[in-house]
């Protein structure tokens, strides 16, 4: 049986502050207003929502016009998912009466951070009526036992 080195309280505090800094950095990114579309990559960002339950994380994504066979959900790292889906038709700005921008879009693309540890490999996906549902079982890494 491998011997695990016990971490000192200072290591734990350092880790905590590192993760806090990372969170602040991430929230800073999301606070900056930006368009929901990207002309360079020809992608639009879908609306999405995350629900945390005691046992799992449920991510839902609104994907109107999405072609089910093109939906890709890829874990980027241990707490980030990338979602991609092609639309059945190309959308142009002038479809919405917008003439001062040019460009057409046929792909949904977004990255979503998962707020708690999960088992990415146990991901379950369901697509119904243009809505994608991703279920990820939660990983309970730290449990405080009562002595």
């Amino acid at each position: 049986m491998p011997i695990r080195r016990r971490r000192s309280i200072f290591d734990i505090i350092d880790e905590y502050f590192e993760s806090l800094e990372e969170r602040v950095k991430r929230s800073g990114e999301t606070l900056i207003e930006r368009p929901s579309w990207n002309q360079k990559t020809c992608t639009v960002e879908p609306l999405r929502d995350i629900m945390v339950t005691p046992t799992e994380i449920i991510v839902t994504v609104d994907l109107p016009y999405a072609e089910e066979s093109t939906i890709r959900v890829k874990p980027i790292d241990k707490d980030t998912l990338e979602i991609l889906a092609k639309m059945r038709r190309k959308i142009r700005f002038d479809d919405f009466g917008i003439t001062h921008y040019e460009g057409e879009f046929q792909t949904f693309q977004c990255q979503t951070r998962i707020p708690v540890p999960v088992y990415m490999e146990k991901m379950e996906i369901r697509f119904k009526k243009g809505f994608l549902e991703i279920r990820l079982p939660r990983k309970h890494e730290y449990e405080i036992s009562r002595e």
Binding site: S36, V44, E45, L47, D62, P64, Y65, G130
Partner: peptide, 14 residues
């Protein structure tokens, strides 16, 4: 027009 409305209304919804 449901899908078109859902796509078009994303920014107002946000």
């Amino acid at each position: 027009k449901g899908e078109e409305i859902r796509l078009r209304a994303r920014d107002v919804m946000r």
